[in-house]
Structures are given as C-alpha cells and as structure tokens.
C-alpha cells in the first residue's frame, strides 16, 4: 500500500477547544492521508466526539488549525489576519466532510429516498432526477435498494444507520467521519453496519472512525489513535498499538476494554 505517501487529506494541528472553563481538546495533532482508515479509540469523555465535530466546525474550536484537502476549515488565514468563515463558506466546506452519528438522526418526516436526495437537491443544487439516480446508487451500496419508500420509523437500527451513511455519501465527500456508529445498535445488527464500513474502506474512502469495536480497529484500519483527556496519547499501526501499547494509559484502557472478551464463554472479539 502506498497510503503512507498519499497526499494529506486531513491535517489537524494544535487543536484546542473548551466548553466554558473546561478544556476538552488540549492540543490535538493528527494527519490523515488520502484513502487511509484511522480509528480513534479512548475512554468515554476523552473528547473523541468533540474532535470529530470540530473537523467540520459543527463545534467551533478555539485554537489551532484544521485543513481538509489543504483547505482551512472554520478560520481563514490571509497573511497575518485570521477571520472566522462566513456561514456560506462553512456550508460549502462541510460538503467535503461526511459525518455519521451514533444516533442515526434520519429526518423522521421523510422517506429513505427523500432523506438521501434532500441535501443533493437543496445544497448541491442537483436536478431531482439526477439526485434520485445518485441516491439509488448509494442506497444500493449500503444494501438498502429495496427500502427507498420506507420511513425511518419502519426500519431497524442497523438499516437506519446504513441510510444515514448513504445520506452522507450522497454529498460525495472527500472524507467520512464515523462517531460510534454501532454503539446504539443491538449486537446482532452491528455486523451489517461494519460491513458497510469495510466496503467503503475497500473502495478507498478516507475514513476517521471512532469506535469501541476493537476487531474492526485491528482488521480494517491502517492506524489506530488512542485519545485520553483531550490529547492523543499514542498512535500506531493496529497490531503494534493494540498488542504492544507503550503508554500506561493505553495499556489500562485496553485491559479494561478487552477483558470481557477474554473471559471463557464470551464471544472472542479479539
């Protein structure tokens, strides 16, 4: 794989973010190359969701820089002047960055197809027929070609989450962010969503995946990032990081996370 020399897709440098007086991100540095799949693991409250939300400026950050395909997100630096992007500029750059949340957040009053064509029509200004064609391609990709007339409430969690993925893909983003997309699902539905992620990875999509699924992290990702307390503690190749973590905090986290799977009788996850 020549991913190591592929151009940088996402560059995050010294990213800081506070909610009130609590600093939640304390200077994050992270680069993701085109086609790379990076999983982010770490204890709850370590700032993983906040980091993803800062990448498309859904959550404005306080300090640092985010570049996607070389383009600045949130703040524009011209010479020595830094100004916040206008709403319109933000709406434009957000189209490059697809995001899927733990709660699927499908538009409840719209059918599956309407969910997927909504932004292509109203944001990308595509013609309706073209948008429908595009949407059907994405729905086929997530295995839901036969569900386009259904309402979200008529679908299982796994199906809803796959629609959410198709909806994000319909914007043809350069990078996809996944925030614990299987955490709200019944165990038997996790597999179908992970299968979609694997397919995307195979197709060369650049992906940042926050997950507790260690087997996914190990098998699919090119790199694993461990976050704790608003910092990237350690990152590396999946085998190296998961099997031979260097930092004490990483070891402790992995011990806690993997333990149940090692107990006799539990499903071997690892």
């Amino acid at each position: 794989m020549e991913k190591a020399i592929a151009p940088l897709m996402v560059q995050v440098s010294d990213l800081r973010k506070s909610f009130g007086r609590t600093e939640v991100l304390k200077g994050i540095n992270l680069d993701v190359r085109r086609g790379e799949v990076v999983t982010i693991i770490g204890p709850s409250g370590s700032g993983k969701s906040t980091l993803l939300s800062c990448l498309n400026f859904l959550e404005p950050f306080d300090h640092g820089e985010v570049l996607v395909e070389g383009q600045q997100i949130g703040f524009v630096r011209t010479g020595r002047m830094v100004r916040r992007m206008s709403e319109r500029e933000l709406n434009d750059v957000r189209q490059k960055i697809g995001i899927v949340f733990q709660q699927y957040n499908l538009f409840a009053h719209m059918t599956v197809l309407e969910n997927v064509i909504e932004a292509p029509i109203h944001v990308r200004r595509m013609a309706r027929v073209q948008a429908i064609e595009l949407a059907r391609r994405q729905l086929a990709k997530v295995g839901l070609a036969n569900k386009e007339g259904a309402y979200p409430s008529e679908l299982s969690g796994g199906q809803q989450q796959r629609v959410a993925i198709a909806r994000a893909l319909a914007m043809e983003p350069s990078v996809m962010l996944f925030d614990e997309v299987t955490s709200a699902l019944d165990p038997e539905l996790v597999g179908e969503v992970l299968a979609v992620l694997r397919g995307l990875a195979r197709d060369g999509m650049t992906m940042l995946v926050v997950t507790h699924e260690m087997s996914f992290a190990r098998e699919v990702s090119d790199r694993v990032v461990f976050m704790d307390g608003g910092l990237v503690v350690e990152e590396g190749r999946p085998d190296a990081l998961l099997m031979h973590p260097r930092h004490e905090r990483t070891k402790a986290f992995l011990r806690r996370t993997l333990e149940p799977a090692l107990e006799p009788g539990a499903i071997a996850e690892f």
Binding site: N56, N91, R94, G98, Q103, N105, F107, A119, H122, A168
Partner: peptide, 20 residues
Amino acid sequence: GQMRAARSLGMSYGRAMQRI
C-alpha cells in the same frame, strides 16, 4: 440531532429550519 445532521450536510440554518 436533526439540526446537527442537516447542518453537517451543508444546509444553512434557515433551510434546515424550513425543511427539517
């Protein structure tokens, strides 16, 4: 989450209000 999803797709606040 409905507003977050709409905004993350690049919809403006006004359009998200109106459509979603």
